[in-house]
Write a protein that binds this DNA or RNA. Structure first.
Lengths: 216, 216
DNA sequence: GACATAGCGGAACGGCTCATTCCGTTCTGG
DNA sequence: CCAGAACGGAATGAGCCGTTCCGCTATGTC
């Protein structure tokens, strides 16, 4: 058994399949985060496998999306729980938002919702996620760090706005999102307290102008 | 002639056609702002006309989009010029952003760009629009109202984020966008100056939760 | 060493959407 | 009373995409 396991790790049909499991899920995440209604063939290509390798694991596109979304929700909960451990309420709030935005969890959850029939598990996790976020927000408000006229239903709108930033490659997107999250945070800070310098650089003229250059 | 003109205004094939001109453009604006790649039939339905009425005026979907975008750019320029007249630099900056967001100009311009081949006129107007916005921003910064680490290429990202808010009906969307524009403005105000209370109400739980309720 | 088969790549299929065209009808302006 | 402008909507044809199917390979077992 041991010897076989070792072989399985390196080559062997079964090991390859196991590796494909991860590759497919990772590719799906990348593809669907970038383009929520990408064709399923794009996922296969990104994973470097054929379409059938994909259908062997998920009976339909919908099932794949549902799985992906479930992952996203779990990630959301994990991020929120980590942020809750931070002692300073404001710091925790900031870490929470940064975590959500960096991991692009919003694209994995809300942007995918509506494209598959949610299971009770989806709903339960979504509710838990909401409750956690609510707690983090309230804690920040109670110590006067976060402005009081924000409600927990405002938070998804913040993620949504930041998730709408979709320029070029993933690396650059993260940088831009962090920049504008800083603006949001400055706006969310309780009255008359500045949050600090912006991080990252704004987009360049060339990047923005690219949209006007189609010639086909 | 006079008598004929009067009749034209009330009924008459030609008058009906003239009215359709406006109806079609208005419908197209409404439809494409809400859903940038809506089918052209949706525009016809929204305008209450047949498809051929539409093709009589525009040789293709692309031509319609190009016209719409041109309108949007002109509107952008008009809004910026009005805002520039405002004496107080900060007030002018605020009015500018509010105007852009309320009129959903971003959806008419950038969101449509890439869906048609831009003409030189598009490019020229886009450049003029950019220059105007740049001036409004700089003026706000020079008097210390707008934080200094913002650049003019940041502005389109602000519109883009706000344009991403697309819940339910137009009325409600405007309210929400104003609310979050307030957050942005608070974040854009120069250090240690609060911008004021949020306007509008956040989305309700029910609105947000609707995304998890698909059962098909 | 042979074979049943898990796992796979990718072509083929069928349904659907959508831009565009076409045709018969209606009504108007002269 | 008619030529034709204007129109509504069905027909067309292309393209996209989810899903299925088929032939192949390498593996694990007897």
């Amino acid at each position: 058994m041991t010897e076989q396991d070792v072989r399985d790790v390196l080559n062997g049909r079964r090991a390859q399949a196991a590796r494909n499991d991860g590759a497919i899920l990772a590719a799906a995440r990348k593809v669907f985060v970038a383009e929520p209604d990408a064709p399923i063939g794009a996922v296969a290509r990104a994973a470097g496998v054929g379409i059938s390798a994909l259908y062997r694991r998920y009976p339909s596109k919908e099932a794949l999306l549902a799985t992906l979304c479930l992952d996203g929700l779990r990630q959301f909960v994990a991020i929120a729980q980590t942020a809750r451990e931070v002692t300073d309420p404001w710091e925790g709030f900031v870490e929470f938002l940064r975590g959500i935005v960096d991991a692009d969890v919003h694209s994995l959850t809300v942007c995918l919702a509506g494209r598959f029939t949610p299971t009770p598990e989806h709903r339960a996790l979504a509710m838990q996620a909401g409750a956690l976020a609510d707690g983090i927000l309230r804690r920040g408000q109670q110590v006067g760090a976060v402005r009081a006229d924000i409600e927990s239903t405002d938070l998804p709108m913040i993620y949504e706005q930041l998730a709408a930033i979709r320029h070029s490659d993933a690396e650059h997107i993260r940088e831009l999102r962090r920049r504008y999250l800083d603006v949001h945070l400055a706006g969310l800070r309780a009255v008359a307290i500045s949050y600090g310098e912006l991080t990252g650089r704004p987009p360049t003229q060339a990047e923005l102008g690219a949209r006007w250059n189609r010639t086909t």
